[in-house]
Design a protein around this nucleic acid. Structure first.
Lengths: 153, 153
DNA sequence: GGAAATCATACTGAATCTATAGGGATTACC
DNA sequence: GGTAATCCCTATAGATTCAGTATGATTTCC
């Protein structure tokens, strides 16, 4: 299970991506919209900022804004930022590789063999999907197919 | 990351699968062979027994033995036994489904959409690989290709 | 200066993880 | 039957992580 922190981070990014470009959102709005715990979100936004995903403006009319377009934001790194390594085994992690303490041979380890390909595919999928794709997919499901082309009647 | 408990459970199953059929292994042997903490392994073996994976004999010459052949033992359920649900989101879990507290619509949730197919594929892979497959794969890597057919010269 | 926002760090309570402890029950062998 | 070896069962301890709160500093606009 991914952490609450990761879920919040993701939700915040989606909300920011939906906000009008150039305007951004304030913590207050974000938390009221989505019913999120304010101070916890604050920490998470700080981390997102430190990682270069968003920018902030301080002071009275402050707030947060996406720094990159949503089609350059991938799920994998976002998840990793919130939760740390994604890999099921440290010896399979690309970003936090570590040999298992008791491992004799990685090549022969049955557990490693078991997870090797499934995890590689899983990770590749997460690395390749973008926020923009997900938002489009969500939109498409929200509208009945016949209405999609009638946005401007 | 999967837990230490899951790694131990997996190692124990592999060791039992490698043991001579009809003989089994004792905790002592298992722990000395693989350098595992004895009392922790004891708990794990109890759980494996309760789940029907292994049988035990008590008393002086007691020990544990696989109940099913290794090609009927799949990675997915084993992992689930040790660690609980495998799914990254509770709303994607087949065995422990639970709606997210704040979720308005599962169909439209971007996070759920993100993990839906990657996780389904990952899970299917784990559900379909057996201990026997993994042991064969490990054996095959241990021997140079030219020698594989020369087992009985 | 005052109000409202972000920034930074410390802290807390609960849960989880990784074992360890200490007996009790069962069996094989003498 | 006694003894030693094994499995069975529950409780508990220590460390770590998680989710969130608290407190106050800093910045910005009016």
């Amino acid at each position: 299970m991914i952490s609450q922190r990761a879920r919040y981070a993701f939700k915040a990014m989606v909300a920011l991506a939906k906000a009008e470009p150039g305007r951004g959102l304030q913590i207050r709005q974000l938390c009221e919209q989505e019913k999120l715990p304010r101070k916890f979100i604050e920490q998470i936004l700080l981390a997102l900022k430190a990682a270069g995903y968003i920018s902030s403006r301080r002071g009275r009319d402050g707030g947060y804004e996406l720094l990159k377009p949503a089609d350059l934001i991938h799920v994998g790194p976002l998840l990793r930022l919130a939760d740390g390594p994604i890999a099921p085994l440290s010896c399979l992690s690309r970003t936090a590789y570590r040999k298992c303490d008791d491992c004799r041979s990685e090549a022969l380890c049955e557990l490693r063999i078991a997870f090797d390909k499934p995890y590689a595919d899983y990770l590749a999928a997460l690395e390749n999907t973008t926020l923009a794709q997900l938002m489009r997919a969500s939109d498409a499901r929200g509208l009945p197919a016949e209405l999609v082309s009638e946005e401007v009647p």
